[in-house]
Amino acid sequence: MSFLETLYQTLISYTGLLEPLIFLAMIGTAISIGFYGSFWNVGAEGQYVMGMVGALFLTLFSPLVPLFEGGGTVLTALLKVLVVLFGGLLGVLWSLVPGVLKAYVRVTEVPVLLLMNYVAYSISDYLTAGPWKGRYTYGYIRTDLIPEAARLTIIPGLEMLRYEVVVALVLVIAFAYVLLERTEVGLRIKFLGTNPVALRASGYDERVVTLTTAALSGFVVGVAGALRLLGYDYRLPYNIGDGKTGFYGYTAILVAWLSFRDVRYILPSALIVAVLTSFGYRMQMLLKDLLPPGISAYAISLILMGVTLVVYSIFRVLRDYSMRLVVKP
């Protein structure tokens, strides 16, 4: 099979693309919100895992499911909403730590966010192998499956989609659009990102706005994590940091960047990134006899990310500033 054939196959297998597309779009939106406020949310990966952890806790280890189980569609819907919101809250918890440190202690958020991704992996792995270790796992280290009642609804004919996830994506994008284009909170976030002194001079505490930005961004990522668990994974695996998250938290940074920080371009950029990554995976499978296992979709998307970001930055500069040439006599 040739390179072009692989690309073609990637493009026509839309169902395979839809799932990464949706999650990349959702997390990409969340990261965009952070970028608007100069909160470089490279910690989405950790917030996503914490969203999954939260969702699993509520569905497996709280009395919530028995309470709502068998109560008709309205009650199950409510159950799912509660679980997803709780996942969002854990995402907030995870993004507020670097948020608070940035706002009140003036610690650069990037290293904190990145390091906390690994702490999230650790917590998830610890719970999976320890207190939450499942009984019905055929000897694997992993948690039990969440109850049927809490699982999301598969759309017939589109096996990789869930009704609830599609609704959530629409809500998230609409929320981000309204937030940034119509509300005063959104305006404050934009000022925080472009001139924090002016924000302060206008009478707002930029520390509070930093916290708001971090919380909103983390919330949406946490929601995505919870949806992931309820709709697709149904359990937490061990060694979750070994690519079992799909690294959406990282690749979505590229989505946010490609969208020129404009919410309207989130979907197209998510599509581009989804094609690139699944193309990367396919190429990897195709070439696995030729290449060592390392040159993976992961590596390819990281390089793409870096190069795109550099090129994008340069283009932005060329667009915004006219350079002047001086000819020496």
């Binding site: 100069s38 470089w40 490279v42 990037v110 940074i253 290449l291 060592p292 390392g294 040159i295 993976s296 992961y298 590596a299 390819i300 998307s301 990281l302 390089i303 793409l304 990310m305 870096g306 190069v307 970001l309 550099v310 930055s313 340069i314 932005r316 500069v317 915004d320 500033y321």
Partner: peptide
């Protein structure tokens, strides 16, 4: 470049990760 240091830094960080994977492999 009159671009925020955060943006340039992140770009190079990711480029470093990716290029590192390629070079090592």
């Amino acid at each position: 470049l009159p671009v925020s240091q955060g943006a340039v830094g992140l770009s190079f960080m990711f480029a470093g990760y990716g290029l590192g994977a390629v070079v090592g492999n």
